[in-house]
Simulated assay, not measured.
Amino acid sequence: MKPRYLLPVVIFAQFAGTSLWFALNAVLKDLQVLYPNTSNFLGNMTSAVQFGFVVGTAIYAIFTLSDKFSPVKVFVISTLIAAGFNLIIVWIKLDFKALLIIRFLVGFFLAGVYPVGMKIMADWYEKGLGRALGYLVGALVLGTSFPHFIAYFSLKIHWQSVIIATSIIASSGALMMLLLIKDGPFRKKAGKFNPNSIVASFKNPSFRTFSFGYFGHMFEVYTFWAYVPLILQQYNQHSNFHFNTSLWSFLIIAAGLLACVLTGEFSAKFGSAKLAFLCLSLSLICCLLSVCFSQANPFVFITIMLIWGMSVAGDSPQFSTLISQNTNPEYRASSITIVNCIGFAITIVSLQILQLASKYISNNYIYLILSFGPVIGLINTFNRTFLVKNNV
């Protein structure tokens, strides 16, 4: 029997751990002053975390750490190590290369937080996993936005307070998990990482379809999150209205929490595929409307940004469900791992493309690049969503 506090505790621990993900982005403006001769600071810092997560996910899977050892303990240890590396930024003055390495290591150990948190949830929920994942991914979204919330209330104190606060919150979530949560009753030893499963899985039409839908989603989502503060700053420069960058970055990114919860709640009624398609469609529309941002009035601008924040995240738990449901059980661990690795590798490509293109394309048109992701996702998922009968 599941304890009543299970879902809230796991959700809080996931939120707390993933707050480390964009902790540095929330204080980017202050931190960048310390590295005046460094170009491409935003893209490189974010890419370092993403690359660390890609490598970490592969290592955790190859050595099947969450299978050999208690997933709860793996989650706790990984969170505490990531929180420790996050604090080094405050304790030691680092050169730019060292800062990149630290952010890489934070991302590496986040591989023991986000995916392992999903495994812990799956070990407890034999039924209703889609709904549970909606809340869990929502916690990731809220954790991603939370450093901006801290920065909003830390305007009159040093940037170090944001970094320290995120590490303390992450550690508190880990300790709650350690003290209150045990490994679930449905925990099973998953298959070992099998490179041959990559080809076998992608021969499955449904798996291939929804994987490419997920790749399109990933091309857009993390780059959008990274650039939200910059989009707000650019709008403030072109208008007579001033949006508080930290507060509205938090609200826009956190809006994805609501979308994740709603898609999770309605997935049984409408199907994960249709809900994912709807979210991709809405985020594509928002990408296209970005060309009008500089001329839009404040209400229209912020409404579009909030809808974008919801739609860019709402499809994530549904794609996770679809990929899991259409994977050969024999290769499930390996297949999901490789899809995650490819997806997060795509985020690095997207970040670097946008950063490079910003040197040549005006702010009015630069965010059209993000529409490539939803377009690819929609093209790949249309047939299986509406024309091929399936049960998801």
Rank of each mutant, 00 (worst) to 15 (best):
L7Y: 13
H158R: 05
K156D: 15
G134A: 05
F108T: 07
A61G: 00
L178V: 11
T18Y: 14
P36G: 01
F146P: 10
N297K: 13
Q14N: 14
A313G: 03
F22S: 03
R187G: 15
L354Q: 12
I253N: 08
G314T: 05
T223I: 00
K359T: 09
S320Q: 12
A26V: 04
G271L: 04
K127C: 02
D183G: 07
S145M: 04
F241T: 06
L378I: 06
G377V: 02
F15T: 04
V137C: 02
H148K: 08
I120G: 04
F344M: 11
I157P: 05
L230P: 06
N25C: 10
M305V: 02
S172D: 09
S283K: 13
K203A: 12
N380K: 13
I302V: 08
S267T: 11
N364H: 08
N363K: 09
T263S: 12
G138H: 07
V261R: 04
G128V: 00
L284A: 02
G52Q: 02
I81W: 14
F12Q: 08
L284S: 06
I353C: 12
S281Q: 07
V375C: 05
T144F: 09
F207E: 09
I252F: 11
H148L: 04
V221P: 15
C286T: 12
L110F: 01
Y152F: 15
G17L: 06
S283P: 10
D30S: 14
V375M: 09
I307N: 03
F202P: 14
T327L: 08
I348D: 03
L99V: 03
W159E: 05
K189I: 04
N363W: 10
S201T: 01
S335V: 00
K274P: 07
I252G: 03
S362Q: 11
K182D: 12
I62K: 09
L288F: 09
A273H: 15
S334T: 07
I157S: 09
L180G: 13
Q295V: 15
G191W: 11
F207Y: 06
I346W: 14
V221M: 15
I150P: 04
Y60L: 08
F382G: 00
N390Q: 06
I366D: 01
I163V: 13
N390E: 06
F266R: 15
V116M: 03
T223K: 03
F207V: 05
E265F: 06
A111M: 02
L155P: 06
A98K: 05
L178I: 12
W225F: 11
N363I: 15
L251Y: 11
